[in-house]
């Protein structure tokens, strides 16, 4: 189990660095369809920022920012966004993940609809990857037993 250590250098550096890591991760996700990067890489970087918070502050403080229940919820929500966009294309009489057919729903040109569709899928992938990375690190570092599980 990870506990907070009162080291001023570690705490200050993590407090300064975490917002910039998250901003960079959002940049990677949002520009995934025309530059290197995408949902998976951006999600990993976003998960790394959460892991840095957990490493420097300990789970006792990190659970107020990002508890494990929310991580489990987000990993399902990410898959739901991905599959939901795919199924939405089925409902407008296209193939699965055929974003061009979403143009009628979004009221834009088909090429613009494809761009928006892949962006939505990447946001879903980013959500799922971020929370799964956080959950894996939490499970490895605690051995699968969280403090609130022991109290019950």
């Amino acid at each position: 189990m990870i506990f907070r250590k009162d080291d001023i250098i570690v705490n200050t550096i993590s407090r300064i660095l975490i917002p910039f890591i998250q901003l960079y991760a959002l940049y990677v996700i949002m520009h995934g369809h025309y530059s290197p990067g995408g949902g998976f890489q951006g999600g990993v970087i976003l998960g790394a920022s959460m892991v840095l918070l957990l490493l420097t502050r300990g789970y006792d403080e990190a659970k107020y920012k990002f508890p494990e229940q929310i991580a489990t919820l987000f990993s399902s929500v990410g898959v739901l966004i991905y599959a939901g966009i795919g199924l939405l294309c089925l409902f407008v009489l296209g193939n699965f993940l055929d974003y061009g057919k979403l143009a009628a729903l979004l009221n834009v040109t088909p090429s613009h609809a494809r761009s928006l569709g892949i962006l939505g899928v990447e946001i879903g992938v980013g959500f799922a990857v971020m929370s799964v990375m956080y959950s894996i690190f939490l499970d490895i570092s605690t051995g699968g037993v969280l403090p609130e599980d022991e109290e019950e």
């Binding site: 990067g37 890489q41 790394a48 892991v51 990375m133 690190f137």
Partner: peptide, 21 residues
């Protein structure tokens, strides 16, 4: 560049952290 990005973020970032954990 895309593979390099994945290598840097996954293998050097998260993989190292998971091994340390």
């Amino acid at each position: 560049v895309d593979v390099a990005f994945t290598e840097a973020s996954v293998s050097a970032g998260i993989g190292t952290i998971l091994c340390i954990a």
